[in-house]
Amino acid sequence: PQLADQKTLAKQIHEAYLKNFNMNKSKARTILTGKTSTPPFVIHDMETLQLAEQTLVAKMVGSSAALLNKDAEVRIFHCCQCTSVETVTELTEFAKSVPGFSNLDLNDQVTLLKYGVHEAFFAMLASCMNKDGLLVAYGNGFITREFLKSLRRPFGEMMEPKFQFAMKFNSLELDDSDLALFVAAIICCGDRPGLVNVPHIERMQESIVNVLHLHLKSNHPDNGFLFPKLLQKLVDLRQLVTEHAQLIQEIKKTEDTSLHPLLQEIYRDMY
C-alpha cells in the first residue's frame, strides 16, 4: 500500500507540473533539436534584438513608451523580469496542487515560495538552454549565450552562471516526470528562514524526497548515483540564487530601472 501511495503522489505531482507550466523540457527539447516546423527566431545582436522586440516581445509584454528610450540591457532585463513573474505565478499554482501544501500555515506557504521560486525557476530554465543559448518568448525566440555575455556590466554577468549550472544539470538527463518531483522538493523545504511549523513541512519534504528517490531508481535504473547528485544540485541552486539576489541588489542601486513589485517582495530581506 505504501508503494501505491508513493506512485500516486509522483503521478499527481507530474500532472500538476504539466498542467501549470507553459513550457516544459519535452517541448523545449523538441524546439531546440529542430523538430518543429518553424524554428525560433535567433537573437544574436542589437539588430536581431530590435526585430524580435517588434514582433515576439511586443506580443509577450506589450511595448511601453518608457522602455523604448532605455538601452538594450535595460529592455532585456525588463523581459527577464516578465518571465520571472510569470514563472512565479505558475510555480504558485503548481505548489498549491502539491498534496498537503495548501494545508500548511499561510505564512509558511509564503515563506516556501519566497525562498523556493528562484531555485525552481533556474532548475527549470536549464530545460530551455543548450550550450549556445536560451529559448525565450514561449519558445518563439532563441537568444544566444554570446550575445547575453556581450551586454555591458552588470547585465552581461547575469546569465552566464545559469548557463554553467544548466550544462552540468542537463548532463543528468532528467525528464519532466523527474523534474516535477525535483521542483516539488525544492519548494517543500523545511529549512527556509522564518518557517513556523517546521515539523509539518519536514514530513511533506520527506515524503516528496522519498518518492523522488524511488522514481529515479525506476526511471534511471542504470544511474545509481543520480539521487545524491540531485541532492547536491539543491545546494548549488541555493548558491546560484544567493549570487543572483546580490546582482539584483546591485542593479537596483546603480541602474535606472524598476523592479517588479512581486520580485521586490521576494528579494526584500531574503538573504
Binding site: 513573474v85 499554482e93 498549491k96 509564503v110 519566497k114 513589485p261 517582495e265
Partner: peptide, 20 residues
Amino acid sequence: KEKHKILHRLLQNSSSPVDL
C-alpha cells in the same frame, strides 16, 4: 503579511493575474 501581499494574493486567489 503586508510585506508579501502579492504572494498572499496569488496563494489565496488564483484568478487574479499579476500585471507585467
